[in-house]
Amino acid sequence: MGDERSILEQALAWRRQGRGVALATVVATWGSSPRPVGSLLAVEAAGDFVGSVSGGCVEAAVIEAAQSVIASGTPRRLEFGVSDADAWAVGLACGGRIEVFVEPVS
């Protein structure tokens, strides 16, 4: 139910079905952040996902990055800061910052 084990199990199940999979992990947080360090999000090539790195604020951007990581096979680091509501920019409403590491499961 959203814990690390079930997220990793889903990643493994997708991989065994031959689907491309990437794992996104919160590796650092500054200030108030919605999910703690170590929080996981598993994404498969078509965009299905389990888990969460921000409780919903930046998931869409992370899923998009994960799909590019699945295609390229190269890990990426992403940083998200405070959102700019007027510009509809991707960000965290809580005012914190997070760093997310996205890697392919190969």
Partner: peptide, 11 residues
């Protein structure tokens, strides 16, 4: 992450 690493952690 290698598939083998994922399998080892879950095991």
């Amino acid at each position: 992450m290698k598939l083998a690493t994922l399998e080892a952690v879950l095991a």
